[in-house]
């Protein structure tokens, strides 16, 4: 294990945000996500680093998520969570599997986020289910959603069916995912992509949770807006 300490200038703790789609209290999805976050914290502490964790239980946002799906309104809790995710250094995203898919609440939450909010952020994908037959939901369905959002999903997904809860192998998978996400945070990958390459991604005015407010006046469209030509015809 690499025990190289973080660069001295990185004295700020890493900000890890846990997003749990579990609906009962306590929910097994939340328990799984917490275990991953705890492992990240422990591993970080061993390396002299600090991690702060914020937990978002989507259950508490259920009304605001459906409101955002059917209207343009972002409620006060959603607004806070979007701010939290915008500042996150990494995310643990956990969903319960319903009907062979991540829960609608979980998917809906990520559907209403701006496409550019999570660019390059490291994400651990986790899911729980009542049977091991759902094991591929994480890699088959959740991973593609997070690819669309252009997040940096870690190679190890963590899936727990009922029988996994007392298996040591689940603990091993949690450790692997935790190390992967910790290394990605340490590397500063997300921060570098976002600071050096942000303009190469598609944005809308006011996207990235209302933070994307730069207006580039030198584009073809801006030339067209000011009486000029749009340049060569765009592909139809």
């Amino acid at each position: 294990m690499n025990d190289r300490p973080r660069e001295p200038e990185h004295t700020e703790p890493f900000r890890l945000v846990v997003v749990s789609g579990g609906t009962s209290d306590p929910s097994s999805t939340r328990m799984l996500a917490d275990r991953i976050a705890d492992r990240v914290r422990t591993l970080a502490a061993d390396r002299g680093e600090r991690v702060t964790t914020d937990v978002v239980d989507l259950r508490e946002l259920a009304n605001e998520i459906t409101t955002a799906l059917v209207s343009q309104l972002t409620g006060p809790k959603m607004t806070r969570v979007i701010e939290l995710l915008g500042r996150a250094d990494a995310i643990v995203a956990g969903a319960p599997v319903y009907k062979a898919a991540p829960s609608g609440l979980f998917s809906s939450f990520f559907h209403v986020l701006d496409n550019d909010l999570l660019i390059a952020k490291p994400v651990v994908l986790a899911a729980t289910a009542g049977t091991a037959r759902h094991a591929l939901v994480v890699d088959d369905q959740m991973r593609s959603l997070f690819a669309y959002l252009r997040t940096m999903t870690v190679p190890t997904s963590v899936f727990a069916a009922t029988e996994d809860w007392n298996s040591t192998e689940l603990g091993e998978r949690i450790t692997r995912a935790a190390i992967e996400v910790l290394l990605l945070m340490e590397s500063g990958f997300a921060e570098k992509v976002r600071s050096e390459s942000w303009q190469h991604y598609q944005h809308e005015y006011g996207s990235a949770g209302g933070t994307e407010l730069e207006i580039d006046l030198s584009t073809d469209l801006m030339r067209l807006a000011t009486g000029g030509s749009a340049g060569p015809r765009r592909k139809q």
């Binding site: 343009q72 809308e204 005015y205 207006i215 006046l217 801006m222 807006a225 000011t226 009486g227």
Partner: peptide, 27 residues
């Protein structure tokens, strides 16, 4: 939410209309 439209209004000295209905005033 389209800066190009606001820019065009400004370029020509025309009016700019914000349909202030769905979003908060800050938007």
């Amino acid at each position: 939410r389209t800066p190009e439209i606001a820019e065009q209004a400004a370029f020509y000295g025309n009016g700019y209309f914000a349909n202030h209905i769905f979003w908060p005033t800050s938007h």
